[in-house]
C-alpha cells in the first residue's frame, strides 16, 4: 500500500468521525489537523497541528494569528495560512448571527428568533431547533423542504439525525413563500412525518411554526395539530 493510500484512509476516517461526532469528539490540535487537509495534500498534518498549538497556545489563537506569524511554523506555507485565515473569518461571520444557548422558553422569543433567522436566510428550508426542556437553544439543523417532501430525506434519515445529535425536544421552523402565513397540505405532511418519526425515539416534537413575510403561525398555539411528545406533554 502506498504512502498516499495510508494518508487518504486516515483522512477519510477523520472526516467521517468529524461529521458524526462534531467538535466534541476532537481535541483542538485534531481540528487543526483536519483543517490542514485542505492545504497540505498527501502528508501527515498531525505534527504541524501540534506545533501550531504549542506556539500559539490554543485553536482560537491559531485562527487569529497573522499569516506571516503562521508561516514561521515548519510545514505552514501561504496556502495553509490562507485556509486558516479564511476559517477564522467564516467563524467570525457565523458567530455574529449565532444564538446558541438563547433562551427561547416562550412563544414570543421562539417566534422572534425564527422571524429574524428567516429574514436573513431566505430559502425553502425547515430549521430544526434542538431545545432543552427548559427552552434553551442547543443547536440548529437545516434541511431542504424539497428533500423532505420528496422522500429523499425520510423517516430513517430524520431518525438518524435525531439520534446522532441526541435531540430531546424539537421545534420545526419552516419558511414558506407567499403572503399568507398559514399551513398548507405540505406543511401538515411534514408535521406528521416528524411526529411519527420522533415519537418512537422518545423525542418531543414541541411545535411546528410556519414563517412567511415576517409573520409566524404556531401549529401548537393554534391547535392545528395534536402534539404528543413521546412521554412529555403540555
Amino acid at each position: 500500500m502506498g504512502k498516499g493510500s495510508i494518508h487518504s484512509g486516515h483522512r477519510d476516517r477523520m472526516r467521517s468521525r468529524f461529521l458524526t461526532l462534531g467538535s466534541g469528539g476532537f481535541s483542538e490540535h485534531e481540528i487543526l489537523e483536519l483543517l490542514l487537509f485542505y492545504s497540505i495534500p498527501r502528508a501527515n498534518t498531525n505534527e504541524t497541528a501540534h506545533a501550531l498549538i504549542e506556539r500559539f497556545g490554543s485553536l482560537e489563537n491559531v485562527l487569529a494569528a497573522a499569516p506571516e506569524e503562521l508561516m514561521t511554523i515548519k510545514g505552514i506555507k501561504s496556502e495553509s495560512a490562507f485556509v486558516i485565515r479564511l476559517m477564522h473569518d467564516l467563524c467570525k461571520r457565523y458567530s455574529a448571527t449565532s444564538d446558541v444557548s438563547a433562551d427561547l422558553s416562550d412563544d414570543e422569543k421562539l417566534e422572534g428568533f425564527l422571524t429574524e433567522y428567516f429574514s436573513e436566510n431566505h430559502g425553502n428550508v425547515c430549521l430544526l431547533l434542538d431545545m432543552t426542556p427548559r427552552g434553551e437553544l442547543r443547536s440548529t439543523k437545516c434541511l431542504p423542504t424539497s428533500s423532505l417532501l420528496s422522500g429523499e430525506l425520510g423517516s430513517r434519515e430524520i431518525a438518524e439525525l435525531v439520534v446522532r445529535n441526541g435531540f430531546v425536544r424539537v421545534v420545526i421552523g419552516q419558511c414558506i413563500d407567499g403572503d399568507k402565513c398559514i399551513p398548507d397540505a405540505s406543511c401538515y405532511s411534514l408535521t406528521r412525518l416528524f411526529a411519527e418519526t420522533l415519537a418512537p425515539l422518545g423525542t418531543e416534537l414541541h411545535d411546528h411554526i410556519i414563517c412567511c413575510s415576517g409573520k409566524c403561525f404556531s401549529m401548537r398555539k393554534n391547535g392545528s395539530f395534536s402534539f404528543g411528545s413521546g412521554g412529555n406533554h403540555e
Partner: peptide, 29 residues
C-alpha cells in the same frame, strides 16, 4: 436548496451530502 450560507453551515452534513452530492470532503468544511 438551503437559501443562505448560514443555513448551509447549520445543515445536517448528511443532508448536505445527500441533497447536493458535494461529498464528505466539502461537507466537513
Amino acid at each position: 436548496g438551503f437559501g443562505s450560507l448560514k443555513s448551509i453551515e447549520d445543515a445536517d452534513p448528511q443532508a448536505l451530502v445527500r441533497y447536493s452530492d458535494i461529498g464528505e470532503r466539502s461537507a466537513v468544511l
